[in-house]
Computed example of a mutant assay.
Amino acid sequence: MSIIKLPSVLAFERKLEPSDGVMFSGNWQDIGNDKKWQPIELFERRNRAVKSNFTQEVLEDEETLQKQIAEANLSWGDDGSLNHGQDTLRLSFSLRVVAGIQNPTACNNVEFESRFKEVIAGYVQGDLQELAARYAYNIANGRFLWRNRVNAQQLKILVGTSELSNKLKFNAYDFPLSGTTTNDKNVAQLAQLILAGFKGEKNTVLKVEAFAQLGDAQRVWPSQEMVLNAAKGEKSRHLFSLNGVQGKDNVAAMHCEKIGNALRTIDDWYPKFEQTNKPIAIEAYGSVTQRGVAYRSTRNDFKTLLLKWLSSETSSQLTEQDKHFVVAMLIRGGVFGEGES
């Protein structure tokens, strides 16, 4: 098979499935005592703020500028914080590891699927340990806490599963966000659990609990909902919440997608990594929307590397890092038929 093209229908299901994360308030010394933790309920905050953003046209007109500066900037949105007298955030979620990386969810080309299964099955049996170790690293370092992680006094991660008699414990600050791998024995044990799930040797479901000591009654940062075309004067900031948590409604939470993005932030193989020294989330073109940059060009994007790998004429051109990236994209999941733009 010398020339391989992507099928018009080609899709892969996610192989790392995090749940939404729920936020609780408590104290650092009460870690391990579930009865001491209360769900964090969102509330609304209304402020009379000052305007600080103006068009160039207004800035060039002193009279109009002064008039607009004098007007109040009314702010209305959701907020959340730890309870008074409590200093620690607990974020809890589950993570299901799904087998079958070598099996497309949908593929309408039998020849392509046969070659794909042959190549990827070989990788799964021999090289998948590297990816499992990187996902384990991002659990241990608490990257999924996002802004809640910044300048916390202490950070602890607990991971439990039916396979463990005792929970794995991690001091998240031992694992820098600039890194992706470590020789830590607990991280290695966690990686083995993830690897067994990927290979279908066990039905792996992890319970992850992260504790961030932020300070008494400090603000917490749930996921923010995207609201399109909000009417002027209406609430402008909507935070993600869940109902029915220990009988409470409107409980602060983090989207499963946001947690998943953190877990797959393992790509330090992209060309400009030495300049940034920051791993990025696994994306087909290495896109980082916060920076407005796509770090992977059409020479080392997912589709190009996948087709090279599947072709007997070009498979030898791929590095081990290229193969890790391709399989990490399969774990991420998505729709990649040639009809997709």
Rank of each mutant, 00 (worst) to 15 (best):
E274I: 12
A252I: 11
W76L: 09
P271G: 04
L214A: 06
L206K: 03
N183S: 11
G197S: 06
K15C: 09
V335L: 07
S94C: 09
I101K: 02
T289N: 09
V251H: 01
E13I: 04
Y295N: 06
S75K: 13
E13F: 10
I280T: 08
L190T: 02
I259R: 00
Y173C: 06
S81A: 15
I69L: 15
G160V: 00
R143F: 14
S341L: 14
A253K: 04
K156C: 10
V110W: 09
Q213D: 09
T204K: 02
Q290V: 01
L6V: 09
Q125E: 15
E17N: 10
A294Y: 11
G200A: 11
V326F: 01
G233F: 00
A210S: 08
S75R: 11
T298H: 06
A294M: 13
F240C: 03
A328E: 00
D301S: 09
S316I: 10
L16S: 04
R147S: 13
I282W: 00
I266T: 12
L318I: 01
W37P: 03
A70G: 07
R332H: 08
A284K: 10
A72H: 05
N47W: 10
A106Q: 13
A49M: 09
V150T: 04
L306T: 07
S316V: 11
L330D: 04
V220Q: 03
A106H: 12
K167M: 13
P7G: 04
K185T: 15
M329E: 07
N73V: 02
K36R: 14
L228Y: 14
G233C: 06
Q189K: 15
A188T: 12
Q317L: 14
F325I: 08
K185C: 05
V9I: 14
A281L: 02
K308Q: 12
G247I: 04
V119D: 08
K278Q: 15
Q192T: 13
P39K: 03
S114A: 15
T204E: 02
D20P: 01
G334K: 01
R219V: 15
F175L: 05
E163A: 14
N277T: 09
L74V: 05
I3K: 06
A136D: 13
Q321M: 07
F116S: 04
R147M: 12
M1L: 08
Q290T: 05
K15I: 10
L74N: 06
D127C: 07
C256A: 14
E340S: 06
N261S: 12
V124I: 08
F170R: 03
C256S: 13
G339P: 00
L128K: 00
R90N: 14
G244F: 02
E118L: 14
A210H: 05
A11Q: 11
N148F: 12
I40V: 11
R219T: 15
L242C: 08
